[in-house]
Amino acid sequence: MSILELCSIVFLVVGAIFFLAGTIGLLRFPDVYTRLHALAKVDNLGLGFTSIGLVFQAPELVIALKIILIWLLALVASSTLSFLIARRAMKRGIIPWRAKEHTI
């Protein structure tokens, strides 16, 4: 087994663990804001590790670059989406769970 394959396996498995943690967080966290934390961040790390793992297996350089491009697009996508969802939830008056004092 080559060193590249080993790196690939490590990154892919770590990515899958992050996906699992993200799903558990999504199911267990108490309100929409904390769930957004679990989704937009932990899952993005999972996607990041998965794509780096696949970059190690890439047959050509262009394919590797394209995977990184897709990852960056997904990053921007979830960051923008989570901001929009959080802001809209705030405007609709969904109160964050267990926040004793909020400044808004």
Binding site: I17, F18, A21, G22, I24, G25, R28, F29, P30, D31, Y33, T34, H37, A38, K41, V42, L45, P96, W97, R98, A99, K100, E101, H102, T103, I104
Partner: peptide, 26 residues
């Protein structure tokens, strides 16, 4: 930072008692 924080949040999700203290800062 993203790696460090990601591990922290992942641990929070997996732990039997997720010790959450959310708040909003300005």
């Amino acid at each position: 930072l993203s790696l460090k924080g990601g591990i922290a949040v992942a641990c929070m999700a997996i732990r039997p008692n997720p010790d959450l203290h959310p708040n909003i800062f300005t």
